[in-house]
């Protein structure tokens, strides 16, 4: 086990490379996911603010609006 982590003296370079890669990827994933959820929420709330007739019209015309609103309502 010690050999596995030490990697014949190269462990620090190998583990640092893999760690930096996965930490950076995880940060970008988290930020992207958070932004997406924020936009979905904002869009769904904008739709909810519309009058019932306006909302129905938008949902009928826009498939995207309908998908976002459905998934937002499921998540709350």
């Amino acid at each position: 086990m010690n050999n596995f982590f030490n990697m014949n003296g190269y462990g620090i370079f190998v583990w640092l490379s893999f760690s930096i890669t996965f930490i950076a990827c995880a940060i970008i994933y988290y930020k992207t996911y958070k932004t997406l959820k924020k936009y979905e929420k904002d869009f769904a709330q904008e739709l909810e603010k519309l009058s019932e007739s306006e909302k129905n019209l938008v949902l009928k015309k826009s498939k995207i609006a309908s998908i976002v609103l459905t998934s937002y309502n499921k998540s709350i």
Partner: peptide, 18 residues
């Protein structure tokens, strides 16, 4: 995920024109 965010951003911007 980023492309989906962009699509939603554009749709939100043009909500009255949908």
């Amino acid at each position: 995920m980023k492309y989906k965010t962009e699509i939603i951003r554009i749709k939100k911007k043009n909500i009255k024109r949908l």
